[in-house]
Simulated scan of single mutants.
Amino acid sequence: MEPIIAIVLALIGYALGSAKIINEGNAALVERLGRRHRTLNPGLNFIVPLVDQIVMEDTTREQYIDIKPQNVITKDNIYLEVDAILYWRIREIEKSFYAIENLQGALMQLATTTLREIIAQNTLEETNVTREEMNRTILRELNATTSDWGVEIIRLDIQRITPPESVRKSMEEERAAEIKKRALISEAEGESQAAIKKAEATKTSMQIIAEGLRTNPESKEILRYLVAQEYINASYRLGESANAKVVFVDPGKSGDLMKEVIAEATNTESNGNGS
């Protein structure tokens, strides 16, 4: 019985030693007698005890590295402080283990160096305007290197680009001046449009009056009445003003004045039709 028990215990120990469970989202690398043997996928796996050894188990899920603020000089010699976040994942666990020592440290150094080089090729204005384009350029350059490490760089997000205080103040003043300029232009355009509309309305009114006078001579008396009424209303408004001045007009000449206005309007319309 004892040999049988020993054999059973040995088989149980072998089974326990050879069974390896890899969690979902992970992968493991196995060496046999010191040489790369195979990769263990999620689930239940078996290895040969004492012969096989798991040398690495890591996640294949997306990871990130927080790139701390870096001092960078732009193309126009402006010192900036830039920080970003790098998102990456392991695609080939064998390469990530054998091709590079200290994978995360290497990714940090590579991302920092590439970020500085790309920003140094742009001016301050280009850096602020073309941030998305810079992100794509950095991504291409990073993946060109990290593909040999079995790593995929998913994206690099530039969090902040902080210029010096003096530059920030100048940028704020420039933006304020631009906003004020646009407001003045809009105001001037509005006034110009209003003046054009008013002139067009006045022209239309004069044409209507002139046409009425030409086709209906009796309407001249109506026009005299309307002009006189407007004159009286204007006199009342002038009298109500605190800075009002009294202007005397010879009543005997007011009729002549009305005739001149009517004649001028009629001549204007006649000349317009003749042309």
Rank of each mutant, 00 (worst) to 15 (best):
Y14A: 15
Y14L: 15
Y14T: 11
A15L: 14
I21V: 14
I22C: 07
N23V: 05
N23Q: 09
G25M: 06
A28V: 04
L29G: 07
L29S: 06
R32A: 06
L33Y: 10
L33A: 13
G34R: 12
G34E: 11
G34Y: 12
R35F: 11
R36T: 12
H37E: 07
H37N: 10
R38S: 08
R38L: 05
T39Y: 01
N41P: 02
N41I: 01
P42F: 00
G43P: 07
N45S: 06
N45Y: 03
F46I: 15
I47D: 02
I47A: 04
P49H: 11
D52R: 05
Q53F: 10
Q53A: 12
I54Q: 02
I54A: 01
V55M: 04
V55R: 07
M56K: 15
E57S: 04
D58L: 03
D58R: 05
T59W: 04
R61Q: 09
R61Y: 04
D66Q: 10
I67V: 13
K68F: 09
K68N: 13
Q70M: 13
I73F: 08
I73R: 10
T74F: 03
K75N: 08
N77T: 00
N77A: 03
N77D: 00
N77F: 01
Y79D: 06
V82T: 06
I85P: 01
I85F: 00
L86E: 02
I90P: 00
S96K: 05
S96E: 04
F97E: 04
F97S: 07
A99Y: 10
L103K: 07
Q104W: 04
G105M: 11
G105A: 12
G105I: 05
A106I: 08
T113Q: 11
L115M: 14
R116K: 10
E117I: 05
I118L: 01
I119M: 14
A120I: 05
Q121D: 00
N122G: 06
L124A: 14
E125S: 14
E125G: 12
E125N: 12
T127P: 00
T127Q: 01
N128S: 13
N128D: 14
N128A: 13
N128G: 15
V129F: 13
R131G: 02
E132R: 14
E132V: 13
T137E: 09
I138F: 02
I138Y: 00
